[in-house]
Design a binder for these strands. Structure first.
Length: 484
DNA sequence: TTATGCTTAT
């Protein structure tokens, strides 16, 4: 895998970028991000792309960010775009674009490119910033290289970026969010003196233990913090509240909530949302509703997240019809639903077999927010499960004109669906999807390769099978069972 | 998106 990805992400292209032709119009037309992104995705001809990009439009940091975001699921292409634009005769990247590119490279686990970008960022005096290091360490941790991440954090200053309490806290949080509370806690104990750990540091560690459903340990941390003379904040209490519910300790969570009230802690929408969601997950629909109503009575305004929690409860444990009623209520009160709200409702509708309505909500969604990859994946998945393959493919096609593009999950779901009808044409589509996903920087599982190969061979598509086989060996995972 | 906490689901 790394071999292929490294190759696609090389940063050495176009030392001498072609100059924009002198005959081009004085002010290039403004182009929209989706069109440009599609142009980049489709270009198999890297020779002509720079020329096109340089003269295409007036480049702005904003446009660059939008396109990078859009190409997020297509790492190699995104980096190719970033690199080409870096050689633009008059446009220069800002720090944000570097951070974005670094994030993409690190996500592809292409660390060589990652660090090349960091040093280029440094030579342009744009960073690396604490944010850059937050991104890099997070990627290392999520790739299972937590020890390496610690080393990177401790060597920040060697890259011209000083550590402080803020970056220390961010790093602790990165470790905790990836379920490494114990490691974070050890590090915390070593460095809390030199960084002058504060309430936030303690909250992060307590939350880390809560994420691992170790509420007693979280309580210990809180106790320790009080012993050291730090006052717990509302956030501290909310972290523990959530911890109880997450660990399935519903009774303890509710008791804790009552204690908070008794101690005259000013309970906020976050506390209420936590309880509504907690009861919901436990299947206690009525209690969830009751708490929701109680908060309004107590003069705490529900947030969109509170509505989301209630709507989700109703979708999962009551009925989607009742969920839609709450959704409409929310609109009437002037709330603007966010992507989560829509995704929850759309999932509920799909689950209830109301696919047409789900698609209607997907259209409505566009007035309030951009559909997310989950929106598309849910609808595609349910269409596939219902055997409506054509409709699934239609939604998939529509994605190329949207704000987000297919991810690994999308491809896996669709490719699997291409086997249910046992149609030769479907297998050809599966093959095409497989090629497209590799081209866009995803690595299919061996299982997927074998399945597609098998299908193509059985339907007499020897030629195409051979092509897929070549692709597979390029990806570095040679098949065991096939000899063509 | 990046100094803690609430909402999807990967």
């Amino acid at each position: 895998m790394p071999k292929l990805l490294n190759k696609t992400c090389q940063l050495t292209n176009f030392r001498n970028p072609p100059k924009p032709s002198s005959t081009s119009s004085p002010s290039p037309p403004l182009a929209d991000p989706a069109t440009i992104a599609n142009l980049i995705l489709k270009s198999d001809n890297p020779e002509s792309l720079p020329q096109t990009l340089y003269t295409l439009t007036e480049w702005t940091p904003n446009l660059v960010q939008t396109i990078l975001k859009r190409l997020w699921n297509h790492g190699p292409k995104a980096l190719q775009f970033f690199n080409l634009l870096e050689s633009h005769p008059s446009y220069s990247h800002f720090a944000d674009a570097f951070d974005h590119a670094i994030d993409i490279a690190a996500r592809l686990r292409d660390y060589k490119t990652t660090w090349t970008l960091v040093s280029r960022m440094r030579s342009r005096k744009l960073g690396p910033t604490p944010k850059t290091f937050a991104i890099i360490t997070e990627r290392y941790v999520s790739a299972g290289k937590a020890d390496k991440a610690v080393k990177i954090f401790l060597s920040m200053h060697e890259h011209g970026c000083q550590q402080d309490l803020k970056s220390f806290n961010v790093f602790l949080d990165v470790l905790c969010k990836s379920k490494r509370a114990e490691m974070a806690y050890k590090l915390f104990k070593i460095f809390r003196g030199s960084f002058r750990a504060d309430v936030i540091s303690y909250n992060i560690i307590a939350n880390g233990f809560c994420l691992k459903k170790q509420t007693p340990r979280a309580l210990e941390v809180m106790k320790e913090m009080v012993e050291r003379g730090l006052e717990p904040t509302l956030t501290t209490y909310n972290i523990l509240l959530k911890g109880y519910f997450r660990a399935g300790q519903i009774k303890e969570g509710w008791e804790f909530f009552l204690q908070m009230k008794k101690r005259k802690i000013e309970i906020d929408a976050v506390s209420y949302t936590t309880v509504v969601h907690g009861f919901g997950v436990a299947g206690e629909v009525e209690k969830a509703r009751k708490v929701f109503n109680e908060m309004i009575g107590a003069g705490v305004l529900p947030s969109v997240a509170t509505y989301n929690a209630l709507i989700q409860v109703l979708c999962k444990k009551d009925s989607v019809e009742n969920a839609v009623v709450v959704f409409e209520e929310m609109l009437k009160k002037g709330y603007v639903p966010n992507a989560t709200t829509y995704n929850v409702v759309i999932r509920g509708l799909c689950h209830a077999g109301k696919m047409d309505m789900a698609v209607e909500y997907m259209d409505k969604m566009k007035d309030d927010c951009d559909p997310t990859i989950q929106t598309f994946n849910v609808v595609i998945r349910y269409y596939c499960d219902n055997g409506e393959i054509e409709k699934a493919l239609e939604v998939f096609k529509k994605m190329s004109g949207e704000t987000c593009l297919p991810n690994l999950d999308t491809y896996n779901v669709l490719i699997s669906a291409m086997f249910v009808r046992k149609k030769s044409d479907d297998l050809l589509i599966a093959g095409k999807l497989l090629m497209e996903m590799v081209d866009r920087g995803f690595l299919p599982r061996k299982f997927t390769f074998n399945r597609v190969l098998n299908g193509l061979l059985l339907t007499g598509n020897q030629g195409f099978a051979q092509e897929i086989l070549r692709l597979q060996s390029k990806c570095g995972c040679l098949p065991r069972h096939f000899r063509l």
